[in-house]
Nucleic acid binder design. Sequence first.
DNA 1: AGAGAAAAACTCAGGTTGAGAATAACGAGG
DNA 2: CCTCGTTATTCTCAACCTGAGTTTTTCTCT
Lengths: 278, 278
Amino acid sequence: MTEDRTPQHDEPESRFLSGYDPHAFAPAAVTVDVVALTIRPEAGTGETGARRTGTPHVLLTRRAAHPQRGRWALPGGFVRAEDGPDGPADPDLPDAALRVLSEKTRLPTELHLEQLGTYGARGRDPRMRVFSVAHMLLAPDLPDPHSGRDTEEAAWVPWSELGHGEGSRAGRDLAFDHGRILADAVERARSKLEYTALATAFLPSAFTITALREVYQAVWGRTLHAANFHRKILATPGFVEDTGELAEHGGSGGGRRARLYRAGGAALLHPPLLRSTQ
Amino acid sequence: MTEDRTPQHDEPESRFLSGYDPHAFAPAAVTVDVVALTIRPEAGTGETGARRTGTPHVLLTRRAAHPQRGRWALPGGFVRAEDGPDGPADPDLPDAALRVLSEKTRLPTELHLEQLGTYGARGRDPRMRVFSVAHMLLAPDLPDPHSGRDTEEAAWVPWSELGHGEGSRAGRDLAFDHGRILADAVERARSKLEYTALATAFLPSAFTITALREVYQAVWGRTLHAANFHRKILATPGFVEDTGELAEHGGSGGGRRARLYRAGGAALLHPPLLRSTQ
DNA sequence: AGAGAAAAACTCAGGTTGAGAATAACGAGG
DNA sequence: CCTCGTTATTCTCAACCTGAGTTTTTCTCT
């Protein structure tokens, strides 16, 4: 299509490519790491009867192999650049992220996966230069994970047990620079809830406004005024659309049955739903 | 620090590392590409006298080597994973981005550099699997570029000559998937102007409110109400701070001299400065 | 039927926004 | 010096949005 722009030099591109040796470059590895976030009832809090509103959890694995054996880490693995003995190449980075995650837990049909960023500082992995493409995955209440190859243990860990970001509340410290990656993911999720309809990714296909508010409350870690939230959601075009149905049952204590909504078409919220500054 | 967590297995980590062969992995290359954005007077528009408000430009280079020889592309290059004959290793990805860019143009002391994302679909480069970490750089009025190795030509190209994103306004089509990367960068810049104080990255250390408004207008491609913009900027805590000085001269036609401001400490704008929906 | 609970609707004061008008400060030309 | 065109800055006001609290509706349980 742009043949006319090619300069009239000697060597055609096809001949150049056949003489190319990919191994001439310094070795560098590309991995994917996945910050899988879901909202599930806090483990251990065995309240019976009372409403379980759920808290955000992240999927962590304990490394069974060197380096950093025994430490908690994000699920991840090497990207398959070409077809090889381990299996076919990953067509793109999201495919690689879903592949490494599917070794740890069963993936739902509806999920949100986005790239967070790439971490490639020298020395972050002692083996060699490793460039790690971090992803963030959001999904409704995922089941308990199973261990995989190279993994001793895998578990959903509540955010409250981690020292993510501000303050030096030590928490579990993660292998490599995974603590930083996790902190970046949490901040990204919190921020995207303001400007996008991302919160619905934590919920099943039909949900109530209250459930949506509880997602915001869980991720932001603060309570919201229920009536104002309700008004705002319904006033934001394309955020949710009415299914016409009602929720099954309001729990043990009775109460009006909530209307069920599904995610609307809008990806961006106009105007945004800001965390108030107070 | 987490010695107590290390499982009591046989092999110590140090011995594991000494037997590690980095070349055992399939070859994959990591490159950086830079979307360098600046605001400069539209070339060719030789209006004398009238105010030149400037339009956004991106730095493009024409490839002198295979593959895709002769096509326009973003400036970029391979990341130096380890020390080698070409020079020392890049300590981190931003260093690599600045290095490849400095081969094309003189870098200012004040600039904003952030990572956009990594593009790694199979087949995007015919030589081998290439993972390209794209960066976005914003800087005030950069000088004309100079050609470098592997580059036939380098130029600041106005956005108006490119078919970035919506519509099929063909424009110059770029090598590899650089058209998509550029479109992503433009959308990122537009969006970040709403929620962050990023617009000041396009301006010198002291600037007027009008100059700041012209940045918004240039990037968003729409005019803004000057009085309301002024009120909003001054009402947003930490966006700008008064220098106490006045601008030199209002141009040819006279007019009140504008007050000069510098960038304030705030990175995020609360509340944001939204593109209105009309 | 009545109490309690949860959802949804209503009220209202205060703040923010969009649009336009008014005022202030400047250069140029009579 | 005085006036005009120009640009910056401030003012006004109606419409809208937001936070906080109250009321109404519709459930379950007793």
